[in-house]
Design a protein around this nucleic acid. Structure first.
Lengths: 210, 210
DNA sequence: TAGATTGTTAATCGATTAACAATC
DNA sequence: TAGATTGTTAATCGATTAACAATC
């Protein structure tokens, strides 16, 4: 599908552009130049133009970029014009928090199922979605066209569950378990290692402390 | 405190080293070479040696690295040998999930207080910690030697609350609100933008889909 | 047309990898 | 000592920034 591979450094910046452009759109701003965007986002205008040009010319010389158009194009690049069917494995506090966070749904990421290995909480409902036992996962994934699995289980079970999910046909994993998964490279994995993030903060706190 | 500034790229890798070394330690492994670590972590041995040498020589020629020693040194670099006092602002699902996640406490990050602007949930207890109204925040921060604030509130209020926190003497903010904070550069900010992370996954899913 | 601003090439900077001398 | 492996310098690679010609 892609002509040339875009670097992950660029991809990581796209959601932030998307957010700022959404805000500008909401404010009714019609056009913006790379220099103006540079001023509010605190990145160089050069980087902005380079980033956008990875995906083709979104702007117009002498004018700049049309906010709504650019916003929509970046949304498409990020796949936000399509619906994604998600399941979440692990109905603990974090899993529940994610299911309850409505903004994902607004962007087309729809939670279809919740699974947990603890029989005590199976049957419980989180926002109309019933928690199911792990045994139901295979059929559910196959019958409901699930493409993304969210892992909010302890690290001990995560590697094995990830392998199962891949065998059921899952294409991407959003991994909150504090462990590196072992899946084929064509399966996309995005790790959210909260304790790593906190440790980084801790380092920066200590090193800038005088 | 620091001689030379260490790049954030290096810092970002330290928690992962720390995790692998902890696992090796638990397995009773005494020593490891950069090459062996390279094999299990899937990064180059060269990078491992460069990374460690930013902080001085942790190894020994002909021998490698002592696992326990290296583990402890990296822990110290990350500031995990000290206790941190945290407060969390926003007692919603995500805030509750973080407070309930015991692993942070194990590493010395202690939740001392929880604040929320909704009077209806003030007084509620989350793991023995009572949710307090925002008005109590200033005194609490000053009297309890709080150094890290965790922001789990909607983006609308986040920028203002961050500024307040800074004025109360907070030194670092772990920001889960989907907005860029506007604080002096000596205040450390670590952003966890979950929707950005999910969008990145969505991009990679779409672009590797054939 | 003149002015503005992009798209894109070239230059710089920084991070990663390779190589090897130092040394345990 | 000989072998192994680090610490560190040098080479490469990739990402960011600067510059400017193209063009609206």
């Amino acid at each position: 599908m892609e002509e040339k591979e875009i670097s992950q450094a660029v991809i990581s910046r796209l959601p932030r552009y998307f957010r700022y452009l959404g805000d500008l759109k909401d404010e009714g701003i019609e056009r913006i130049s790379s220099q103006e965007l540079s001023d509010i986002m605190k990145v160089t205008a050069s980087q902005i133009r380079q980033d956008f040009n990875n995906f083709g010319g979104f702007g117009q010389q002498g004018y700049g970029y049309n906010v709504v158009y650019l916003y929509e194009e970046i949304g498409k690049i990020l796949g936000l014009d399509k619906e994604h069917n998600l399941i979440i494995i692990g109905a603990g506090h974090l899993g529940q928090a994610l299911v309850n966070y409505m903004n994902f749904e607004r962007r087309g990421f729809i939670f279809r199922g919740i699974f947990d290995s603890n029989p005590a909480i199976c049957g419980m409902k989180i926002r109309e979605i019933e928690v199911q036992p792990m045994e139901k996962m295979e059929t559910f994934v196959k019958e409901n066209n699930i493409d993304i699995a969210v892992l909010t289980i302890p690290k001990s079970g995560a590697v094995a569950v990830a392998e199962q999910l891949v065998s059921y046909g899952i294409k991407a994993i959003w991994n909150f378990a504090h462990v590196d998964l072992n899946v084929p490279k064509e399966i996309q994995v995005e790790n959210v290692h909260l304790s790593d993030s906190l440790m980084k903060l801790s380092y920066n706190l200590a090193s800038h402390d005088n």
